[in-house]
Design a protein around this nucleic acid. Sequence first.
RNA 1: GUGGGCGUAGCUCAGUAGGUUAGAGCGUCGGGUUGUGGCCCCGGAGGCCGUGGGUUCGAAACCCACCGCUCACCCCA
Length: 422
Amino acid sequence: MHIKALKGFKDILPQEAALWQHIEGRARDIFQRFGYREIKVPILEKTGLFARSIGETTDIVEKEMYSFADRNGESLTMRPEGTASVLRSFIEHNLHSERPLQKLYTMGPMFRHERPQKGRLRQFHQMSVEALGVDRPELDAEIMAMAWMLLVDLGLKVSLEINSLGCQECRPLFNKALLKFLADSKGELCPDCERRQEKNPLRVLDCKNAKCQAHYVNAPVILDYLCSDCAAHFQVVEDCLRDLNIDYKVNSFMVRGLDYYTRTTFELITHDLGAQSAVGAGGRYDGLIAQLGGPALPGIGFALGMERLVLLLTADGGEAPGDIIDIFLAALGPAAGRRAFAMLHALRLQGLRAVMDYTSRSLKSQMKQAARCGSRFTLIMGDDELSSGRAMLRDMASHEQREIELSADLRAWSKAVAEIIS
RNA sequence: GUGGGCGUAGCUCAGUAGGUUAGAGCGUCGGGUUGUGGCCCCGGAGGCCGUGGGUUCGAAACCCACCGCUCACCCCA
């Protein structure tokens, strides 16, 4: 009893797991509508993969990775995000030669050694989606539309914020301008921003300090520095979003945490998650595949945080899961119990969800169990029924009971029962 | 890594001028109905009062330390 789960690691108990299955099911359905296929990749990779993709100087790589030496001394890491692994697989198996555009999604746990808080865990789960091989802006809009469709389908209200970070050509120009602005602002910035301007200057822009924010209204805006190609790309993204009637807001201060993003970035924002406002986020990463040793192909992707989705869906009255059992066999006495045991198996072979109680409890307590497990029907059989060859089938919702014939031919009998209660 | 809040039954929580056997609701098990669930009534089980130390005749309560949970900063899905 003293052994507890690790800090930041959480059990997902059956009731909540039902909600997870619902979310995953809706996601699979919608992702498939857009032509995405599932890919399953390992949770463990060589440390270098993440260091190279996410960025050597990001917090994730510098101090949040679960890394350890394998038995041969090689450094391995529990993946802190999904994209790197999917790209590694894409490159390793030459998936670009299978088709010009690979639309892939994966779901599973990620690991970051952070201090847990609301909506933030050390093991958390993401649905990670990637579209690899095409750099057209229509694809950017489509992938945002897909994320949007899923969230709407789940009944969530979130807002979409977009930005462009430019490319290798134009981002350096903006960086230079921003650094100059920050240098001129000496003494005006909070300690956090002083630190950030050295490590990741872009990040100062979404500082929460009100004084900093007031100061940054005069900061250079990245959208003003985009090269013509990037500006045109962003323009089409906006046009496409409008074509699809998707509400969005341009937020030129939006910064993504991973170094590999280029051009379009976006976040799906909510205000019902405490400090963690992003349920999902993503963007384009046109240089990353080449950077990881693959062909020079563009890509775009996003991730949704499962725990954050679950939080949002349980906040406003989570749905109780529906019936989970079709029929409960309530047997009285050892003879009926043995008979029911075989009947139970036959019912399951028919595809029914069927359970019984093995502890010889009273009918009353068995009825209680039947009700509690959400059983739609209960079959009651004791000595009377065994000798008469008929048992009582009770509809738990309507309270109606009817007699049904028992039979030694369990196959035929169970088939008949399946028809009656379906 | 930094700061705030909180640790009493499976769950949600009462219980402090320090006082004897630590409570409620919900849940669970059983009974009321010798073979019928949800409502009602009755009863049972279930607590190192987070851990260790200190103060005291006496600590769930007061003091200290530690551990855990939680929220926030940072960062991010």
